[in-house]
Amino acid sequence: MKKERIGELLRWYMREHKRGIWLVILLGAIYGSVFYLYNVPVEAVAYGTVLGVTFLLVMNVLWFWKFCRKHQKRMELLPGIEYAYRDMPEADTLAEKDYRQMVMDLGKSCYEHLMELENQEQESKEYYTIWVHQIKTPIAVMRMILQEEDTRQNRELLAELFRIEQYAEMALSYIRLESSESDFVIKEYNLDDIIRQAIRRYAPQFIRRKLHLVYESTEVKVLTDEKWLLFILEQIISNAVKYTPSGTITIRVTEDKKLSVEDTGIGIAPEDLPRIFEKGFTGYNGRNDKKATGLGLNLCRKAAEHLNIGIAVESKPGVGSCFTLDLKERQFNIE
């Protein structure tokens, strides 16, 4: 224990026992006066004083040590007090007993409320998870109906239906990322397979918006979670498609396992660039779009943190944006 900390505890100990200290001083003054008035020999007084002071010093050292131990015990319990309140040190005084009982009652009440909130949160997650899975059925049925006839109106409706499906899956991803249960399966995957899955899913959007896609197949293999890497890539491609009225989207993979998605869209304002991964932040482009949620890139960042994937962004307004995923193997941040 540091000297500064010991000094602080000593001040608190003396403050807590100041009445006893003043009582000892007062009694010493009274006995000293009586001995002086009755001409008691100095040697006898000095001998008794030395014995008394020595005894008091020894006892106070022991009491101070116990005082420090109890304080240390309380500090160890403090970080998890909502669960460890039952392990508080036993009381030595009536006041400590009263305070201990108050803390015990308060801790029990907080623990019950905490358990109730956790149960409610778990029930909400289960409800929304079931809802997202159930909503996929009518979406699939509507897609089949709209695909029966290839008209301009049906193509527009299919595009909006695709957006609904995106938002439903985004909600499910949000629930899974916020859950304490691990939803990650780490294996070695062929990166080309994952990229082609994302391209196939967004192919109708490329065609509808008449965007040119540039991609050369790769043989790079990565150690990752396929589902969540695909989710990150799809969100980045979705933004590229959304904010590229016309032009090209280029997907590249380098030998050092860096995956980039570059577009020739409207770009990101310099003042918005540092905040694009914040929850709910839509920026200037999102406010103009009126349909941005500010959740997609935030979920990308959270998933990337779990997989320890670095995300870098470069953008110039009117020129385009480039998102780069660093897929080099690192230690995963998965509980």
Rank of each mutant, 00 (worst) to 15 (best):
G28P: 04
V220M: 12
E329R: 05
I237T: 03
Q134K: 14
R155Y: 08
L37D: 14
V24M: 15
S246L: 08
I276K: 00
V58C: 05
F67T: 05
N288Y: 11
T293G: 14
D326W: 00
D98W: 15
I199D: 01
G247K: 07
G280H: 04
A159V: 14
D98H: 10
T137E: 10
A168K: 02
L161P: 00
V61W: 10
V319L: 03
Q101P: 00
W63I: 03
R86S: 11
M14W: 12
Y127P: 03
F64S: 01
S321Y: 02
L177N: 07
E82C: 05
Y36Q: 15
E255W: 10
Q101D: 08
E16L: 01
H71Y: 07
M59W: 07
L172Q: 11
S315N: 02
V220F: 08
V61C: 15
E178L: 12
F281Q: 06
Q134R: 14
E219S: 09
R252L: 09
Y243I: 00
E121L: 12
V214S: 12
L307D: 01
D183V: 09
E219Y: 06
L307E: 03
A44L: 14
S238I: 00
P79L: 06
C68Q: 03
P270G: 14
I311H: 04
L158P: 00
E262G: 10
E262V: 08
I6C: 03
D193I: 10
G28K: 06
V220C: 07
Q197L: 09
L157C: 10
Y47C: 08
R163N: 14
V61D: 11
Y128I: 04
R301I: 03
K3Q: 07
V261T: 05
N119Y: 12
L94T: 12
I21V: 11
A312N: 10
I81P: 01
V103W: 08
K18C: 15
R100N: 07
I311T: 00
A198Q: 08
K302W: 12
V50N: 15
V103E: 02
L77V: 05
S246Y: 12
L297H: 03
D326T: 01
I130A: 15
V214L: 09
E178P: 06
I195V: 06
E82T: 12
Y36N: 13
K290I: 11
G80E: 15
V132E: 12
Y36C: 04
L51K: 06
A269S: 13
P204Q: 07
E216S: 11
Y128C: 02
L9S: 04
V103R: 05
L62P: 00
M75I: 06
I236G: 02
M142L: 13
Q166R: 05
E165I: 01
Y47W: 02
T282K: 11
Y47Q: 04
S179F: 04
S33I: 10
L9D: 08
I145F: 04
E305D: 13
W22C: 03
I237F: 02
I237A: 02
A269Y: 05
M104F: 15
S180V: 08
E82M: 07
Q153G: 07
Y85A: 02
G265D: 01
Q205W: 06
Y167F: 15
K108N: 15
S109M: 09
K97R: 14
L78P: 01
K3H: 07
T224C: 00
A269Q: 12
I175V: 13
I135T: 06
L157Q: 14
F64P: 02
